[in-house]
């Protein structure tokens, strides 16, 4: 495997892991459940997307045969992440979870 491919894989892995970590930091640092929804559902999904892209490049370079089935996981995560975020937001509104003081606008009654 050439140095360039290895560098690309390493960079993608680090970017992906970085976004995954940022998503979880958001989960811990943000103030209420509605803002916490933003971190994991998107930063984490993008992070996993980066790592999976790295895996795709790595196995394609390693075996010399195009290996694209990893794309399925990314595709699936990108389709499902909004659905789970939407359902969790609805759940939070239904249970009337506390929101931070500075929030403008009101959640709907469920």
């Amino acid at each position: 495997m050439s140095v360039w491919v290895e560098g690309l894989v390493a960079a993608l892995i680090l970017i992906g892991a970085g976004f995954t970590l940022v998503g979880s930091i958001g989960l811990v640092r943000l103030q209420d459940v509605y803002t916490r929804l933003h971190g994991p559902t998107k930063a984490t999904t993008l992070g996993v997307g980066g790592i999976i892209l790295a895996s795709l490049v790595f196995f394609t370079a390693q075996t010399g045969v195009l290996s694209v089935h990893e794309v399925l996981i990314t595709l699936f995560l990108f389709i499902t992440a909004p659905v789970s975020a939407h359902l969790l937001a609805k759940t939070a509104m239904h249970r009337q979870e506390k929101k931070v003081q500075s929030t403008r606008g009101e959640p709907w009654q469920q």
């Binding site: 998107k42 389709i79 909004p82 939407h86 937001a89 609805k90």
Partner: peptide
């Protein structure tokens, strides 16, 4: 709604 949720900074809630 999915696109709004995927672009960070916004989540479609209901």
């Amino acid at each position: 709604a999915s696109v709004v949720s995927l672009t960070p900074g916004t989540v479609s809630a209901d």
